[in-house]
Design a binder for these strands. Structure first.
Lengths: 195, 195, 195, 195
DNA sequence: CATGAATGAGGGTTCATTCAT
DNA sequence: CATGAATGAACCCTCATTCAT
């Protein structure tokens, strides 16, 4: 429960954007959900797009921070990969609306992917790829496959799990979180094939 | 080059939906791109949503058909998995707009995922899971991980590659196609871990 | 059951105009109900308004004819008044759609009442007023009230009954017809007051 | 001259609905006539139909109120009947647009007479019939004719006069009003027949 | 005669944004 | 800070009418 109106509005926007999607969200909906007047939303945010960008920027900020931290840390590769998965699952547990919006409105939106949007993704992938490359260099990951291939597969698997949760509006229990991390890591590192 | 107007309109809709996304697509755009009058679009399709659904249904139809064929065939598991990847890549090569729309407007759209939409996905996943389950039974895939986990990871990886292509509007050469199939299969079956 | 297409179309138009009203009637509805193609309606009738006018003209023709016949005949006044009521009730029994359209689309329509339309009504009232005037001259009707007053009240009463039937889509049995005629005549001639 | 915009819009709507009829009224016409922007009409009223209903409900409200008052009062029957006529004529004098709309768009409209619309009329007739029935019981009105017959004839006569005024866009002078009341009452109570 | 594809102007409605209070 | 009335461009859809076959 935030006190200041600005945060209340952002919180309300998160909910509405998640429920209805960007295109079907009305500024009036946000104001109503926030319990503030129509005009106040415009008092704090220049417009619908700005409000959306504020939210998305917050997400990218968290994501980059985490990836940079992992990249810089000297934990071993496997733990880094686990931490990345953990980040998504834990953020989903704490801020499901934020992650939902990322999955449904940003991740695949052709609309969002214009100039600036695409650049965000490239950074996201680059930071991850750096970790993969390091893993290869250290002999932890196989080197006969390009690091960006590994990146795609790894992030694709995470996104698939997250998407399922988002679309099904599922809860993530602690136990499920660990099982999911374990499953993804196991398959990613050792493969789905029987020995 | 299609002859009949109905197909021309669908073709135009595919292009515009891809370029602008559903929400930003104007019926006027479709008519203009198709080179027909505004009203003719409504002569053939009851409205924007119907037109979109026609397109999406077509996609689901192809996808289900392929998965059912694979499920019923007696080719070995590895080949089935390859064929699934092949399907996405080949369809993207032949009908990039269709696949793009699937990725950007259907796959993760909170809007699409209501009622009927979700059911489509469940079917998609079930059919794939069936193949995974069979692979486990035949001893080809590891059994210490649930079949739906394998499904998520496998499909997630494919989707990630497809998404990259879609968002970057990339071409798929024959050579790239094979390399991608190979990469996904290798990692999925044997893991990204060294040795 | 008419054979030639032209009449079939008029018949269909009668039904649709009655069911939906002029404004909500689509040319497509008429074609469909008539079981003919879209274009054929235009082959025979220049447009929606023309088709409507054909119908309405037919009604006015019958009405005028009846009133002129009554005006010219030498039956006594009471019988003339009865015949006027009878005309409405019998026409309703035989052609309910025609009478319905008159009541709902012509009689009170501000749209219809432009120039030509208003003139039709004046003729209708004049012809009736002539009969009232004659009744006064022959000492059958009271003369301390203007003939057009009598006309309004008389026709108003008839229209009220017809409207009830039309709006309730009621049937007129022979027995009901006679009772209605009797009721209107009794009250109109002798009043509703107890002696 | 009303102050608040909402009333101004209703007033403008009354004028336009009267002039052009419901079907031919454009929301833009109403906004223009009210001197407000297009959007403001929608700010106050959900749509064209709602705006129309607001107007019509107002009419029914007044009408019912009057009939209930008359039904409950202990004035004698003749005066009640006079008051009913008076109500229509006076309302027409003060709010000609309202009465016009009732006559042209509600009273006989097949469109209006669906579901709720028909019920309104039944109430209108019932309330009037109650007065007739009371008149019969008190020996003021003849009892050999059903009360609803009397109702139809009485209301039919009033409506005929009102319609003439509406369609002719006539003014009602004080003198004309009294003459009309007197005429209707005389014929209704004592008949048009010469003794 | 008969068909139905094709046209496009027109109208109701939505909603982001502005602004006076 | 806060409100919500006011604006109007934009868009989906309807449907009378035309016309090629």
């Amino acid at each position: 429960m935030k006190n200041n109106k600005q945060e209340i509005i952002v919180e309300a926007a998160l909910e509405v954007f998640r429920d209805k999607g960007y295109a079907n969200t009305r500024m009036a909906d946000i104001a109503r959900r926030a319990g503030v007047s129509y005009g106040l939303v415009y008092h704090y945010f220049a417009g619908k797009e700005v409000l959306f960008d504020v939210i998305v920027e917050g997400w990218w900020g968290q994501l980059y921070q985490m990836l940079k931290d992992e990249g810089a840390s000297d934990t071993e590769c496997r733990e880094k990969l686990e931490n990345i998965i953990k980040f998504f699952l834990d953020t989903y547990a704490e801020e499901p609306n934020l992650v939902s919006i990322f999955v449904t409105e940003v991740s695949r939106s052709s609309v969002y992917h214009t100039a600036g949007g695409l650049a965000k993704f490239r950074t996201f992938f680059s930071l991850t790829e750096e970790i993969m490359r390091e893993g290869q260099k250290k002999g932890f990951l196989r080197s006969d496959i390009g690091p960006h291939y590994l990146t795609y597969i790894f992030l694709g698997a995470i996104e698939a799990f997250i998407s399922i949760m988002v679309l099904g509006k599922e809860e993530v229990t602690r136990e499920r979180r660990d099982r999911t991390i374990n499953g993804i890591i196991k398959v990613f590192l050792f493969g789905a094939g029987a020995d």
